[in-house]
Design a protein around this nucleic acid. Structure first.
Length: 254
DNA sequence: ATGGCTACGATCCGTAGA
């Protein structure tokens, strides 16, 4: 079994790349973020032709999440209970005897800003929601763009980023609060090359300089973590013409 | 030196992303 997550930064623009990538990597399920598409524009037919069904929750211009999988999801929900939010950032479903949660965490813009406060409130709600999901679904995977680099080794230049949004201590504490529920960052279950990132700024040739952050993660409950055999970040799509600024994260299971 | 890319929806620049 192969699960993946990819912030495509516009599914309209990236659909050809996604279809190529699905054909090459053949994941059983992929969580997508920043689809930026209203639901009536979701490319269901193109994905069906590629062998995937999908659940999706989108909006115009911003945000938007989707889960494409080889077999349909059940018990799909696009809301966090107790946290009404017009921003389409979460989507979950039961699939193959597992609970799958796709997340696109708020960016936060700048420490101390209104959007930063929203980001921290959003993470608190996510923690509470995942706690209740875990109680009902021991086999839980949370895949997405968390917009937090959990540790300094997830940052190309920790000194330059110190205290900035994505690495600030309250954000990292919010991320650790998810791990404290009993979830593992799948990437860190294995030895990894140093300076492996999942996002690189479009500007300043950041990708060529590997000036990135690891802000896309796959979190696994204990029951899934013990079955996980690998977690990698696929840099190949970031090298294409007109790429997303994020690379896909892939987890494989025995 | 606060820039620099990209996507989007509005125009022919502003907002947002990270």
């Amino acid at each position: 079994m192969k699960l993946a997550s990819w912030n495509v930064n516009s599914l309209r623009v990236r659909l050809p790349q996604l279809l190529d990538w699905l054909a090459r990597e053949r994941p059983d399920l992929v969580c997508l973020q920043e689809t930026k598409l209203e639901d009536h524009r979701f490319p269901l037919a193109e994905l069906a032709a590629a062998g995937y069904t999908a659940a999706y929750s989108g909006q115009k211009t911003y945000n938007g999440v989707a889960i494409a999988a080889r077999t349909p999801l059940a018990e799909v929900s696009a809301a966090m209970p107790g946290f009404p939010d017009p921003q389409r950032r979460v989507l979950c479903g039961t699939w193959n005897e597992q609970r799958i949660v796709c997340v696109y965490a708020p960016n936060g813009q700048a420490v101390g800003s209104e959007k930063y406060e929203y980001k921290l409130r959003w993470f608190a709600a996510l923690r509470d929601w995942l706690q209740s999901e875990l109680a009902r679904h021991p086999r839980l995977a949370v895949l997405g763009d968390f917009n937090v680099a959990p540790e300094d080794r997830d940052v190309h230049d920790p000194k330059a980023w110190e205290g900035e949004v994505h690495v600030s201590e309250p954000e990292r504490a919010a991320f650790r609060a998810l791990l404290a529920l009993g979830l593992s960052d799948a990437f860190r279950l294995f030895a990894q090359p140093e300076k492996t990132f999942s996002w690189w700024d479009y500007r300043m040739m950041a990708f060529r300089r590997n000036a990135g952050l690891r802000i896309d993660q796959i979190l696994l409950s204990a029951a899934l973590a013990k079955r996980c055999t690998a977690c990698t970040i696929d840099k190949a799509p970031r090298k294409l013409e007109r790429p997303s600024d994020h690379a896909p994260v892939i987890a494989e299971f025995g």
